[in-house]
């Protein structure tokens, strides 16, 4: 029977907190970039310009058919080399965090764009007609009338996707980046207390994600009754 010894956790808290900050940084940046890029992809997909909608469809289908961990590895292994040779970035500069963020953002954009496309399609067609009839251009009608309504309906789904993304950030361990999970693993490995640290990390992930999805559900119910 394994004897639990939690004593290495209190001392490691500052280090774990640094890891949590990296996890949150990746999550937030990827959510923001993912939603912006995902919105553009959704607009392209719905566009009547064939090359644009074709490109967006290909992008979404490609990224949704590849495991996330592979995308992360590509960005970790290949993209820094590309940048070095193309733009003369100094060799060996640490781009793990930025390449992880870029990988997540591009990957998540594919999922966000599908949520956003459904959101746009959920807005009655007459709204676009009414905005156009008032003389708004397509861009104005989208920006002022359709997208605000679409996003209001989508907020719960976008947040849920953000929670999934937060859990998935633990995959950056493949690039030896010390996110929360990576930090916990390192501490546990160093002190020979891997089981305790991984249990602790799991509990933290659970508390954060469970709380967040409760909040989302609460908001969702409020939206329904409004």
């Amino acid at each position: 029977m394994h004897e639990f010894d939690w004593s290495s956790i209190p001392n490691a808290l500052p280090f774990l907190w640094d890891g949590m900050k990296i996890s949150l940084e990746i999550t937030l940046s990827a959510v923001v970039f993912g939603i912006v890029w995902g919105t553009l992809l959704a607009l392209m997909r719905l566009s009547s310009v064939t090359p644009l909608s074709w490109f967006a469809a290909a992008y979404v289908n490609l990224f949704r058919a590849i495991p996330l961990v592979m995308v992360l590895l590509w960005f970790f292994l290949i993209v820094p080399h590309l940048l070095e040779s193309l733009f003369g970035f100094p060799r060996g500069s640490d781009m793990r965090l930025s390449s992880a963020i870029a990988g997540f953002a591009l990957f998540e954009a594919a999922y966000y764009s599908e949520i956003i496309r459904a959101g746009i399609q959920s807005v009655p067609k007459g709204q676009m007609g009414a905005a156009s009839a008032l003389g708004m251009t397509y861009g104005q009608a989208m920006r002022l009338v359709v997208l605000p309504q679409a996003f209001r309906n989508m907020v719960p789904l976008l947040l849920t996707q953000g929670i999934i993304l937060f859990q998935d950030t633990s995959l950056v361990y493949v690039s030896a980046l010390a996110d929360f999970f990576g930090a916990a693993y390192k501490v546990g490995d160093r002190d020979g207390r891997l089981v305790e640290l991984l249990l602790f990390a799991g509990a933290v992930y659970f508390v954060i994600c469970f709380t967040a999805s409760r909040i989302v559900r609460h908001y969702q119910n409020k939206l329904k009754t409004a």
Partner: peptide, 21 residues
């Protein structure tokens, strides 16, 4: 320029189509 033309022609729809937000 259809947008410009439409801005001079008022239209009222069966389902009102006010902007709910």
């Amino acid at each position: 320029n259809l947008s410009k033309l439409r801005s001079t022609v008022g239209m009222v729809f069966q389902n009102f189509e006010l902007f709910p937000h």
